[in-house]
């Protein structure tokens, strides 16, 4: 049931090249509504606070339960998934902007293909012979090791940590926290470990680990509470060792 109206200030942009502009909406809100559900209501009748009928606001969403990573945006200045941003828990008026650091496609939609490119750059995969049967038992792994690895496998490439990172940006080479955490994960896998040197070399190159300025913003904004700075610390030790190995040919 409609309970109240809420003021939304939305930064809009029609095309990647065009100038952004602001619009204000008074949107109806129901019990336990979140930013996405309000935007979904609004697109049925997109009328601004001063009565102007405009094109619906473009935004991304899919799972609506904070696991697909699609709907991240800047809400009251903080990068976060919008489906789990409950209206009741936000300061009003609510200010919505596209996720920074990534090129805007339209309104609140950004292009995060750089994240995928960076995952390629650090070879965030296990190199297998082929996805066919090899008739071998699975490798053992302790529950403790599992618990540590599982944390990192929950990264949904939402891009919040990248948006919050002062070192990551359109003109900067830094690979960013999320792909680094994946290197940590892959290097811990029993066979993924075989290629750790290659992954480490990738993050020892330009735009790699040493570009991290240790601002620790990433770990504060990650909606999945992924210990990104712990991963970065571990990788620091791994790269140091790798450097020594490279020097002494161990």
């Amino acid at each position: 049931m409609i309970r109240a109206n809420v003021e939304l200030r939305i930064r809009r942009q029609d095309t990647p090249g065009s100038a952004p502009y602001w619009q204000v909406f008074n949107a109806p809100v129901r019990e336990r509504d979140n930013v996405i559900s309000v935007l979904m209501q609004l697109r049925q009748q997109p009328v601004t606070a001063d009565g102007q009928r405009v094109d619906p606001v473009a935004f991304e969403h899919n799972c609506m339960e904070e696991v697909c990573g699609a709907c991240a945006m800047l809400i009251n200045g903080l990068p976060r998934p919008s489906c789990s941003a409950l209206i009741d828990e936000l300061d009003h008026p609510i200010v919505l902007e596209p996720l920074p650091k990534f090129p805007v496609v339209r309104d609140l939609i950004v292009d995060r293909s750089r994240m995928s490119e960076h995952l390629q750059r650090v070879k965030a995969w296990i190199r297998i012979d082929g996805a066919w049967e090899i008739h071998e038992r699975t490798q053992r792994q302790s529950q403790q090791a599992w618990a540590r690895n599982y944390l990192y496998s929950r990264c949904m490439s939402c891009g919040c940590c990248m948006a919050a990172c002062p070192q990551f940006g359109p003109d900067k080479a830094f690979v960013g926290p999320a792909p680094l955490a994946q290197v940590r994960l892959m290097n811990a896998h029993p066979t993924g470990r075989y290629d750790s040197a290659e992954r480490l070399h990738a993050i020892m190159a330009e735009g790699g680990l040493t570009d991290c300025g240790n601002a620790q913003n990433c770990v504060r904004v990650c909606p999945k509470e992924i210990p990104l700075t712990t991963a970065i610390g571990e990788l620091g030790r791994q790269t140091t060792l790798q450097m020594l190995k490279d020097l002494f040919g161990a």
């Binding site: 297998i128 071998e136 302790s142 529950q143 599992w146 599982y150 994960l185 892959m186 993924g192």
Partner: peptide
């Protein structure tokens, strides 16, 4: 399942690591 495991899927474990 074994193939998924090789791909790096973090399946939950028993105390014996299986």
């Amino acid at each position: 399942i074994r193939t998924f495991e090789r791909l790096g899927v973090t399946f939950s474990r028993t105390p014996e690591g299986l």
